[in-house]
Design a protein around this nucleic acid. Structure first.
Length: 212
DNA sequence: GATATGATCACCT
DNA sequence: GGTGATCATATCG
């Protein structure tokens, strides 16, 4: 079913180089109530090398971001907007503070269980979006710092079918360094939220733009 | 000690 | 396509 575990060596490059390689990998979640897994279809890179003001690690190893400075392959989980949990894979050598945010995936194992966790969600939306992905897999604060490369860990990262194509674009929802094309997605996959080709603001005097 | 803000989602029009 | 929900974290006084 699943491919071999991802190894630390594969995560040592810069996050924007590692990120596209995570597309198609499986994030597996073994729980008492059953196993769920998603095949990753959308990720974003956050660099701890000091050139990325949008990274949580940008202001140093604060208590929240401490896991980002740990060894590669750890799970960095953070709480967002007062209600959501989002998950990242730590990349790069220990001490750097880089990570890749897992933005979306398709549920490939345990669809029934994922639907129980997200009752009013269509199949396509089960793990579409970073907070939905963690909800579908049952990932939460207890998984902070989990070793995704350890075969004994309940949450693991395995190789899977590589994407048919990769599309890069700007990251979503951030206010700093929004121009860096560090968001990567499997081209045309239905679980990938639409690239906002035209988040262009209305300019005075600008007319309607064309069809999508 | 207080407050502004956010790597979002769901539901409204 | 706009906005309310809701709180940990960071930063300021």
């Amino acid at each position: 079913m699943t491919g071999p575990l991802v190894t630390a060596d594969e995560l040592l490059a810069r996050p924007e180089e590692v990120a596209p390689g995570l597309l198609g990998c499986w994030l597996v979640s073994d729980r008492p109530e059953g196993t769920t897994a998603v095949r990753l279809t959308e990720v974003e890179a956050y660099s701890g090398t000091g050139d990325d003001p949008a990274a949580h690690s940008h202001r140093g190893p604060t208590p929240r971001a401490a896991v980002m400075f740990g060894p590669p392959g750890r799970l960095y989980v953070y709480f967002s907007y007062g209600m959501h949990w989002c998950a990242n894979v730590v990349t790069g050598p220990e001490g750097v503070g880089s990570a890749v945010l897992l933005r979306a995936g398709e549920v490939v194992v345990g669809e029934e269980l994922a639907r129980e966790r997200r009752p009013s969600s269509s199949v396509r939306d089960l793990a579409r979006g970073p907070a939905r992905l963690t909800a579908a897999l049952g990932i939460g604060p207890d998984d902070r710092g989990a070793d995704l490369l350890d075969p004994a860990s309940p949450v693991r990262l395995h190789h899977g079918d590589p994407p048919s194509g990769v599309t890069a674009g700007p990251r979503v929802g951030i206010t700093h360094a929004a121009d860096l094309p560090w968001r990567f997605a499997e081209t045309g996959h239905p679980t990938v939220s639409a690239f906002r080709a035209g988040v262009r603001r209305r300019r005075p005097g600008a007319g309607q733009d064309g069809a999508p």
